[in-house]
Design a protein around this nucleic acid. Structure first.
Lengths: 222, 222
DNA sequence: GTCTATATATGGATAGAC
DNA sequence: GTCTATCCATATATAGAC
């Protein structure tokens, strides 16, 4: 148990852990922490239930591991906002990155939303420390841009809340968005319309003339 | 069982049902449908568990009743948007009404968010029929205002999504908002800042000059 | 490392006395 | 209408053979 004796350096372990994490993200997204069953996660991962418990002793430990993956995405996207950038481009790329993740990793967004919705029992500390610090850091950049007259003064923290809310809405409330739009599935055009509307609201709200230029390369990657 | 024989016309029943519904909204908001236990709901309502099952035979039936109450609020607020109104006032009052409900009925928002987040198993039909129709009705009003040059052309449905997302964020993600703002509890000033930021984004995004006038009376009521 | 069988706990729902 | 006691299903977690 303590140390793997196989020569492959835990190749099987790596593959199984990855499968379990992906399956768990899906099941936690669909059913929430309480509603998710280890049996359902194991079935989706293609493993017997006892095997899942071999890799993650408790359901809670597995849940924590899933959340850890998600936080990386969230904090990574935030770094589109850097002091040396043009405000309009930085904000536009940040919105594009968030919409990109809502589209490609909707389950990650849903698991996070569910966690926060129910009081952030696991992530409470992260929100109050790491996230708060990162928001303050980005808010300071926005305030500097405002002081330099490069954007209209708005409350920078509430602006960040607005961007989070509007972009993640397309993942978290996807069922409602599809129902209201009458779509079986959201397509390229729908996400483009969403990003366009959100970008227009944010840039106009900040008094920044839109350039019509496409988001810069790599916007969705880092 | 079939008909109440008491002379008070079911006064006790009315009181108990109301207590149960309020308790259920709170517990469903905190724990989700699956995480909520009938024991917890009964305890919060101050009744023994079996008594709860006397009024609502199944947990699902109780959940449906809670959702029904919530839909009334949602559709009611929507009626701030009427063709004869001034676009800026109508949108401003709609935002004010939604923020008012996020503040005063956060649990209602959370239960709804949880339902949609997990695929709207109960409300799917409502979203595809009633809600879709209501959004189309309001989108038509917005399109008419745009055609009359009273507001800049934007995608009206995505604009509605944006307003929903930004306003309900303060109820659904309240824990995160509090953590990032470093507040133990959100106060009057926080909601005012939220409404101000959201209104600025929406009105500027629609190219409508802000009047500085306070939201009209009754904005939060109907 | 894998998997069958099972111990154990929790929670929805009801029977039946009052 | 109220409430105690209980049935029964479900689900987490583990024991122990392979």
């Amino acid at each position: 148990m303590a140390r793997p004796v196989t020569v492959d350096g835990g190749r099987i372990r790596k593959r199984n852990v990855a499968r379990i994490l992906e399956a768990a993200e899906g099941v936690f997204a669909e059913s929430g922490f309480r509603g998710a069953t280890t049996a359902a996660i194991a079935a989706r991962a293609g493993l017997p239930k006892a095997n899942l418990h071999y890799y993650f002793r408790t359901k809670k430990a597995l849940y924590r591991a899933v959340l850890d993956n998600i936080l990386e995405l969230w904090l990574g996207a935030f770094d589109q906002i850097r002091p040396e950038r043009d405000p309009a481009e930085a904000l536009g790329d940040y919105i594009a990155a968030k919409i990109y993740w809502s589209r490609t990793r909707p389950n990650a967004s849903k698991v996070f939303a569910n966690e926060v919705l129910h009081g952030a029992p696991i992530l409470g500390g992260f929100l109050a420390r790491e996230l708060r610090a990162r928001v303050e850091e980005k808010a300071a950049i926005l305030r500097r841009w405002m002081a330099q007259g490069r954007m209209r003064p708005v409350d920078p923290v509430h602006l960040v809340f607005a961007i989070w809310a509007m972009t993640q809405h397309y993942a978290d409330f996807e069922v409602q968005v599809r129902a209201v739009l009458g779509r079986g599935r959201l397509g390229e055009a729908d996400y483009a319309a969403a990003a366009g509307t959100i970008t227009a609201l944010v840039l106009d709200g900040c008094g920044i003339a839109r350039t019509g230029k496409a988001p810069s390369r790599g916007a969705a990657r880092s």
